[in-house]
Amino acid sequence: MRLHPMTSLAAAGSTAVITTAAASWPLSLTVIAAAAGLSVAGGVARRMLPAVAVILAPLVLSLLAMHGLFFPEGTTVLVRWGPARVTVEGLHFALERAAQLSAAVLVLLLCSFTISVPDLVAALSARGVHARFAFVLASTLTLLPAISSRLGRIRQAQEARGLVIRPGIVGRAGAFRWQAVPLVLSLVEEAGTRAAALQARGFGSAGQHTSYRAVQDSPIQRWVRLVLVLAAVAAIAARLWQPTAGAS
């Protein structure tokens, strides 16, 4: 059976919140391992890997370099190069933060890679208030892949007119206007047409809306969602109640 999109969302969200609240590296590592295992089991690991690398590599490297080399609060100095001093406390802080953030990022990415966007949109729309938010989300996800092919088309059309993009930042900045103007102009005009089309099809009007797509849900999932949300709230409350509990 397929999970209701709200259930995946609740599971990912509360896991991320609880991991952040607990701030314990064994838990963070467990969550990372679980997310990795689930992504392999779900067959999304190959698609997820580049995204994870692009997000986490700079984050983790930046944390390690920043706190590993410069940590004025650190006392146990391992190595010292000029102004830089590698301290145990700095490395510990960097690794702990890296594990905690990686856990949250992995869980949330796993959710967005496994969730069915149309189901999510239908589930959000069914809740009335969120129809406009669902539109923004789904429309962005639809437009994104189309943009790269459209940019490619514009670039070709302009190269045919004699535009040579020089390598490097300066060249690219110079080309920005030539490529961005046709792109933005066509997107804005298309949006104008789309607005009229959507209004003519009743979008934005008040009144009861229905959904053509049926999203499976079950009482068990409803209970699970409730428990997950309560658990996340409890974790936050516990942490705020005892800010330093479990400090390592």
């Binding site: 208030v129 406009r132 938010f133 539109f135 923004v136 429309s139 962005t140 437009l143 994104l144 943009i147 790269s148 933005v184 997107l187 804005v188 949006a191 104008g192 789309r194 607005a195 959507l198 209004q199 979008f203 934005g204």
Partner: peptide, 26 residues
């Protein structure tokens, strides 16, 4: 903020938001 503002926007502005998000993200 979103809950407060989103329902008050005209549809012509609403359809521009995904366009803006795409520009931001890309």
């Amino acid at each position: 903020l979103i809950v407060g503002v989103l329902p008050t926007l005209p549809v012509s502005t609403l359809v521009l938001i995904p366009v803006a998000l795409v520009l931001n993200i890309v």
